[in-house]
């Protein structure tokens, strides 16, 4: 089982990202579960969203405490990365930041896990004209963790949003995902 935590701020779409990831994984033939922390969900408050992906039925109903993958979708939330000690050595961190993986390691004193960084905020501004980094982060997570497939992710975005936001907006989302997928740096 893969357990994923997505850390974002209320209103940034962390919960949506976790749901989309789960839905794409289900279409890929996996058992899934996604949920979010509720309560202090004011716009801007740090919010943890969770996703589980497995080849067996998922029965557990508790929070994720030992994630395999953690994604931080807001650069100012890097200090929330306090759970790396509870992650496996080959755990994956996907971070929206202008810093390089090495700089993040040094700054946050992270000695384990694979670190992936991407400037998802800039990609989002380029694609949508505003900072909604959750969509590009999905591309980066896919490149780093290979939970679904890039095509599966793009198909899910199209199926889910085409009727709601139209073809042009869907294309922008897909471009954002592709750019993040290609621009993510590992180190």
């Amino acid at each position: 089982m893969k357990e994923i935590i997505i850390i974002g701020r209320g209103g940034q779409g962390g919960k949506s990202a976790a749901t989309i990831l789960a839905e794409a994984a289900l279409e890929g033939g996996n058992f899934i579960q996604s949920f979010s922390e509720y309560g202090a969900e004011r716009q801007g408050a740090p919010v943890y969203s969770y996703c589980r992906i497995d080849d067996k039925e998922i029965r557990i109903h508790q929070g994720v405490t030992h994630p395999d993958i953690v994604a931080v979708i807001d650069p100012t939330l890097l200090p929330q990365l306090t759970m790396t000690e509870d992650m496996p050595d080959d755990g994956i961190l996907v971070l929206n930041t202008t810093l390089s993986p090495k700089d993040v390691r040094d700054k946050m004193n992270i000695r384990k896990c694979k670190v992936f960084t991407v400037n998802a905020t800039q990609i989002s501004i380029d694609c949508f004209g505003k900072a909604i980094p959750n969509t590009p982060m999905l591309g980066a997570i896919e490149r780093a963790a290979k939970l679904v497939t890039l095509d599966g992710l793009k198909k899910k975005i199209t199926d889910k949003f085409l009727r709601k936001i139209g073809e042009e907006a869907v294309k922008k989302n897909i471009t954002a995902i592709e750019r993040a997928y290609n621009e993510v740096k590992e180190g």
């Binding site: 289900l26 899934i32 949920f35 109903h61």
Partner: peptide, 12 residues
């Protein structure tokens, strides 16, 4: 059903 745990969690 359990609030949030079941009502708000996405499952197959």
């Amino acid at each position: 059903m359990d609030g949030f745990i079941t009502s708000h969690a996405v499952e197959p």
